[in-house]
Design a binder for these strands. Structure first.
Length: 783
DNA sequence: GGCTAGCGGGG
DNA sequence: GTGTACGCTAGCC
């Protein structure tokens, strides 16, 4: 890019959303392009030239190799540069040139010198282009350039200058459509080689468009999709499960029928790209399944859960994909109505979540097209890559590491029982604070003491003080940015689009700061540091231990503690002096997070229930919050927690237990309350043990279903002989009359109730005796 | 009873 | 494919 303004050039504001290789160019040297939307919603392709490059460490023989390479490939340029790598200066040769020559040069060097001497050859040119020019997606830029062409709604320019614009509108006008479909098979999993798309639905916010299979011929569906996308010309195509199912199926189906899936601008064919996401040229592909998949508030990762969370209407009938074939054959209209609900919900959810997705993209620098596909580790890494460039540091490589684990947070054994008036003290962003305060970073870690180094003898790890590490700098930047964004938010009404955008942004900045420690301890991270991660947790343990010692010294009664929190019997003055001490002597910030009027602990760590001063019930770690217990058990535990915290008598609790046992035996409890959900976490062939959900998954697999990692298997236990895995059946195949109610009473209800009543003196045997006599008619003589 | 496999949620 | 600590059930000997 040059900064000369030529006569006859246009200058516009664009909201950039992607980087790619151009579809149309005015000259051969235009090899990258930015895609953006104007303030009027017009689509721009902004072409530019970018010389890709990589670095090589100057080892013996490299120079002669390079002179051979440069004489063989005329486009190659070589220059000497100095960069930093993990805080140390290194001299390197920078090799740049056209894609083809560069690829050949890389191959020669990899073979002859070794991969470990090359740097940034493993970073995509489009990514480097964004980073080197400090361009972040989902942000406004003003560009100047000359027009190359105008193609049916796509304006193509050659960029001459580009500069960031602050204070523009939150977003340009955006057109979105949602897509969902029905595919079925006579035998388990639909296969695109064989099974047509039966039904496809598109919603544009105004009209519902549907396409129906004709016999077993779905060519009109595939063509219809191409045509409707061309006609509606959306900027965003949103789906739920697009990257994992809809797009690969449609691409496969199109190949089978000899029809291109031309959903990109000007009919450009969709293709698979980074992290496996599908890319439509000029349009943003958003798959909302990826949003729920890495958000722990969603238990089963369904569209219904997401819709409920956003306050949308939930359909009266939800249909599991396992039952699509059944409904298609017997109750087709019900299925079609359900898909109609889905596609409309997907559309509405995009507008609800749009700000979050675009903020995540603008903060991390990953285009919105695959920012949700990228794992949180990759999101953090992309952010670090930008910062490293600004600091003149190389992007390191991931080579030769072995798995090692290190100790984590400190957890105290709780004092069993029900405690009154307990304050929960926690450290504000403990790990990010430690990273900043102690300068812990992959580039500051040393193994020897001496010089300007803080040395930790217990670990044999030191930290340089002469430079500020990249992670501390990043965390500081994130914290500072967040403060700024929070200040800006105050200038907008709470329901304005700008407020929503800024609120999403500040949340993402916080999440990103909290991710940095985990990132550093992740073996696949470019900036992996085993020592750095170990030091962070070590300092965390030291901080909490010292705080607990001080609290005891002050005469406070410690009930429990975990990693960055301490539960203390609340004595306002002494707790306040503890907080002051933490601030003054440890240089860390701690606060009272909440106060429990009552809190119940068993002997176990990481499991408790509390009643807060404002009347809310918190349940942590207990079965109530776990999906691998049936809903009946979870609800029952909640009732007992509430009773115990409210001070119910033992007799009252025993009566309650008796009545639940009787209710289950009466057969009045609905089937879905007995379903236990468990996740498939690996390939079915890798399981060594016989577990119920695996046995059920294997049965589904035999019936033709592809069991993928991440799927949830819902099953119930039925009457019969032998181990559980031999009498567990998929919930859709279960018969209400065959439910083993005694199993549920003894192995689901009894333990979860016992857990929360034992601390107040009711033992499991007492409950068991109720199970054994209740319903026999003798129970009224006992208790 | 002692051990392992597997899972999920917490900080 | 961010991290470690932990509790618990079921299967198996």
């Amino acid at each position: 890019m040059v900064l000369i303004i030529l006569v006859g050039m246009a200058g516009y504001n664009v909201w950039l959303f992607d980087v790619a290789h151009p579809l149309y160019t005015g000259s051969k040297d235009e090899n990258v392009c930015l895609l953006g939307l104007g303030e009027d919603g017009r689509l721009y392709e902004l072409n530019d030239h970018f010389d890709d490059y990589f670095y090589v460490v100057e080892e013996s023989g490299v120079s002669s190799l390079l002179s051979n390479i440069s004489s063989e490939y005329s486009g190659i340029k070589i220059s000497r540069v100095r960069r930093r790598l993990f805080g140390r200066e290194v001299d390197l040769l920078k090799i740049s040139g056209g894609a083809e020559e560069l690829k050949r040069a890389r191959e020669v060097l990899r073979r002859r010198v070794g991969d470990e001497y090359l740097y940034e050859d493993d970073v995509r040119d489009t990514i480097k282009y964004l980073i080197d020019n400090d361009i972040t997606p989902c942000s406004w830029y003003s560009f100047e350039g000359s027009k190359v062409a105008d193609k049916n709604g796509l304006s193509i320019y050659r960029i001459e200058s580009l500069s960031r614009v602050e204070g523009g509108p939150p977003l340009p006008p955006i057109k979105a459509i949602s897509v969902d479909m029905v595919v079925i098979s006579d035998f388990g999993e639909p296969d695109f080689h064989r099974d047509p798309v039966n039904y496809l639905a598109v919603y544009d916010g105004d009209e519902y468009h549907e396409f129906m299979v004709s016999g077993r011929d779905d060519t009109d569906i595939i063509r219809g999709l191409n045509e409707i996308v061309k006609r509606l010309d959306p900027n965003v195509i949103v789906s739920f499960g697009g990257n994992s199912f809809v797009w690969p199926y449609l691409v496969g189906r199109g190949r089978q029928l000899g029809i291109k899936i031309g959903l990109g601008v000007l009919g450009h064919e969709i293709h698979q790209s980074l992290y496996g996401h599908f890319s439509f040229f000029g349009r943003i592909n958003i798959d909302l399944k990826e949003y729920v998949d890495d958000n722990p508030i969603f238990e089963l990762k369904t569209l219904e859960e997401l819709a409920e969370y956003a306050g949308l209407r939930i359909p009266s009938t939800s249909i599991d994909p396992f039952s699509y074939a059944l409904f298609w054959n017997d109750r087709r209209q019900v299925l079609i109505d359900y898909v109609k609900w889905r596609v409309m919900a997907i559309y509405k959810l995009f507008w609800e979540l749009m700000e979050q997705i675009f903020s995540l993209s603008s903060v991390t620098g990953i285009p919105p097209d695959y920012v949700l596909t990228a794992s949180s580790g990759r999101q953090a890494e992309q952010y670090i890559m930008r910062m490293s460039r600004k600091r003149g540091e190389l992007i390191p490589k991931v080579l030769g590491r072995r798995m090692r684990s290190y100790p984590g947070g400190l957890v105290l054994s709780p004092k069993k029982g029900v405690h009154s008036n307990v304050a929960v003290i926690d450290f504000k962003s403990m790990y990010p604070s430690i990273i900043m305060k102690y300068n812990v970073s992959p580039d500051t870690i040393v193994k020897e003491s001496g010089g300007d180094v803080d040395f930790y003898e217990e670990l044999g790890i030191g930290v340089r003080r002469d430079i500020k590490g990249i992670l501390p700098e990043i965390v500081e930047t994130l914290v500072r940015e967040r403060d700024l964004v929070r200040k800006m938010m105050k200038e907008y009404p709470r329901d304005s689009p700008m407020y929503k955008l800024l609120d999403s942004k500040q949340r993402i900045l916080k999440i990103l700061a909290n991710t940095m420690y985990g990132y550093m301890g992740w073996i696949a991270a470019r900036w992996y540091s085993f020592e750095g991660a170990s030091l962070v947790t070590y300092l965390g343990r030291r901080t909490i231990r010292e705080s607990i010692e001080k609290a005891r010294e002050l005469g406070l009664n410690i009930i429990y503690g975990d990693t960055d929190s301490v539960f203390i019997e609340y004595d306002e003055d002494r707790v306040n002096s503890l907080l002051r001490w933490i601030s003054e002597y440890l240089g860390m910030e701690a606060k009272i997070d909440k106060v429990y009027r009552k809190v119940l602990f068993t002997e176990a760590k990481k499991r408790y229930a509390g009643l807060t001063v404002d009347g809310r019930i918190d349940i942590v770690g207990l079965e109530y919050v776990r999906r691998d217990w049936c809903e009946l058990a979870r609800e029952t535990q909640y009732r007992f927690v509430k009773l115990v915290l409210e001070g119910a008598s033992k007799n009252r609790l025993l009566d309650e237990f008796r009545s639940i046992v009787n209710e289950i035996r009466s057969g009045k409890v609905a089937l879905d309350k007995f379903v236990i959900w468990e996740q498939i976490t690996r390939d079915l062939s890798e399981y060594k043990a016989n577990a119920p959900h695996i046995a059920v998954a294997r049965a589904l697999s035999r019936r033709g279903w592809r069991i993928r990692k991440g799927m949830f298997i819902g099953y119930v236990v039925v009457k019969g002989e032998g181990p559980l895995y031999k009498r567990s059946v998929h919930y859709l195949k279960a018969d209400m009359n065959k439910i083993d109610r005694e199993y549920y009473i003894r192995n689901q209800i009894l333990p979860v109730v016992a857990r929360v009543v034992e601390p107040i003196g009711i033992n499991e045997k007492t409950l068991l005796s109720i199970v054994e006599v209740a319903g026999t008619g003798l129970d009224r003589f006992f208790g």
